[in-house]
Design a protein around this nucleic acid. Structure first.
Lengths: 208, 208
DNA sequence: TCATAAGACGGACTGTAGTCCGCTAAAGAC
DNA sequence: GTCTTTAGCGGACTACAGTCCGTCTTATGA
């Protein structure tokens, strides 16, 4: 095996970059991966709601404190697990082909986003619920919420500059709350009905 | 004092009305009122988030079990406390003067409702948050949510019959989530901005 | 007034989220 | 290789939500 950190110049050694924190310690990394693996395994085995953080810590072979230090709380763990899936959508939005990616007219991109998000949400409702509801207002503190919000906000600004784009973006994101999605699912709604309904609302709001 | 239950005929005695449960027992009523009073007092004193149900039970001078039997859970207690305030709005909607009450065109009534609800929400954010977030999907199981939903659904149906009124009503209620309201407040939004923004959205959706 | 059953009472008990802090291991300096 | 600093570790601990069930109260009708 090669040593991954080669020799460093005196300058490099004597001037640690401020603001850029040390790289993750080896044991920290090992445990982080263990916990994520254990969580994923238990969640799919027993369902998100039926797994305590104690159980995850035990399954991962680490202490409870470790889980909390890494992820803050239950919501944080759920966020970490969702991250991967959300990044895929984020990538498509930033640099994928239209209509999700740049190139299509703003109103069309909004419709494409809502559709894509509903798909994602529907596939991972339980995880989303955990990440959004585990603590009060968690949804609005998560990085990805801000990303979706900024995206919509720009598109709304472009399509209808006379609206309060920032607020309107929150309004469009509101019906994507995991809680609501789950409640509608339970009362018999299917995914297509929501897609169609939301598309109709967005179309009224942002005529093409 | 008169005996409030006078003599009853043999028929009345032998045919207890089914479906209509016995009246509330005196001790039950006493304790229910005590708990509500104690909860209201502690909530205003310390803030909703800083009061445990143990504390409420102690303050009310009843056992913990009593609190839970009556109200089910934390959310149920919050719902009971909100009930009074919400009933006022409900009354205005059902039989008050237009535009909140019957008489005005549907689109106008929707705007009036959104405004009035935002006022109510803003005054009692903390309680609403408790009632909506204390358990997963609590918001959508509460009786009053169904009432608001039915109201909006009828108005939408009247104003734009080609829409999926049921779903669209959920969409219009979504931005009224206590969680979102609170988050926006924390990031500096004022009530008027939300009213204006939501009115603009609703107007696009339901032209007058 | 008393007997009886429906139902309420309440506190001990369980399970979980989240905190705290003395201990341990890794990384860098020499 | 050894020393020092720094960060991570982990489990005992606290506080709270919600359950359970033996005991006690109320309403009723005889």
């Amino acid at each position: 095996m090669n040593d991954s950190t080669g020799p460093r110049s005196a300058l490099q050694r004597s001037l640690p970059v401020v603001g850029e924190p040390r790289p993750e310690r080896a044991d920290a990394r090992r445990n982080r991966l263990r916990v994520l693996e254990a969580a994923e395994r238990l969640f799919t085995e027993r369902g998100v709601k039926n797994v305590s953080l104690d159980a995850i810590a035990a399954e991962a072979g680490v202490g409870k404190g470790t889980v909390f230090r890494r992820f803050g709380d239950r919501a944080g763990l759920a966020v970490a697990l969702l991250d991967e899936r959300e990044q895929e959508l984020q990538a498509k939005i930033i640099s994928g082909p239209p209509p999700l990616g740049p190139g299509a007219p703003p109103a069309v991109r909004v419709l494409a986003f809502l559709d894509a998000y509903l798909d994602l949400l529907d596939r991972h409702v339980a995880l989303f619920m955990d990440s959004e509801n585990a603590s009060d207002g968690a949804r609005y503190r998560i990085g990805s919420y801000h990303l979706w919000h900024r995206h919509l906000s720009h598109l709304i600004e472009a399509a209808r500059p006379e609206l309060d784009a920032d607020y309107t973006a929150h309004v469009l994101l509101a019906p994507l709350a995991a809680d609501l999605h789950n409640a509608l699912r339970e009362q018999g709604y299917d995914l297509d009905r929501m897609k169609t309904g939301l598309r109709a609302v967005a179309t009224s709001l942002l005529p093409a």
